[in-house]
Amino acid sequence: MIQTIATIELPVDERLVLEKNRLEPEQKTGREKRVSLVTGIHGDELLGMYVLYEVQRRIEKERHKLTGILDIYPAINPLGIDSINRGLPQSDIDMNHIFPGNENGNLTEYMASQLIDDMIGADLCIDVHASDIFLKEIVQVRMQKQDEAKLLPYAKMANADLIWISASATVKEATLAHSLNMMGVPTLAIEAGSGMRIDKDYGDQIVEGILHILKQEGIWQGETTEVRTPDVAYAEDVDYANANASGVFMPAVNIGDWVCKGQQIGEIVNALKGTVEEIISAPCDGKIITVRQYPIVYHGALMYRILRKNSLAK
């Protein structure tokens, strides 16, 4: 059942409507668990569109096996999604920087508060992100250190390749995931692939993970597959290769590849002079978990993230 969470009048002949779809068992007991699936906070991250569609398609095929409530929120930033903007098109505000919002605030704050109000009380929330247009990333669950104890059991069921636990940061306190975690709704942030693209294989991997979690939570009785065992990485387990020249980035390795420290993994070239501006070598032995997709780089641009080999022994 499609439900409206919030509507806002735009200046000229248009309404911004925040909607969700609620899937419920035909016979309710009133004691069902409720899980929220969210995507589209960032308007340029589209992988979750496929994931949320596919989860619904699988469930609709065997609707009688749904034994809990599933709320689907596919477009938290509808204006951004429909206009290829990561943030709010009018103000460039990042929707994931304003939670928990404010009922008496402006458009974004109001929408955020209505969304939070609607999600409070859920037993679990899964927020599907992709990377931005610059990077491609393996399927991963991200969390802050402070949430590790609570979220790690769920994250391990998500069929991800990696669980990345970062140091807690004040600036992350305004994300949807943080707000919900603070309010007692365990919330996983999943990230995979690239911005503005849908990588179906990654999408299917996440779908399997979500169905597995739904089954473990007791709200889905359909078939699920065995999930992968993810690597678990803390902040210090991930190394970075940032550009130290500006130019055109040409990668030499792929996501998931194993590399050795010092191995040449790419170049930054200059198309005017025909020269190589920087040879990029791997900063450590490990596995490539992030590869830059967008070729133009300035000093500082992130080109690779590498999961250190020695961290995997743990």
Partner: peptide, 8 residues
């Protein structure tokens, strides 16, 4: 010159 509903 334009406002959204809820704008400050």
């Amino acid at each position: 010159p334009l406002v959204n509903q809820k704008d400050l």
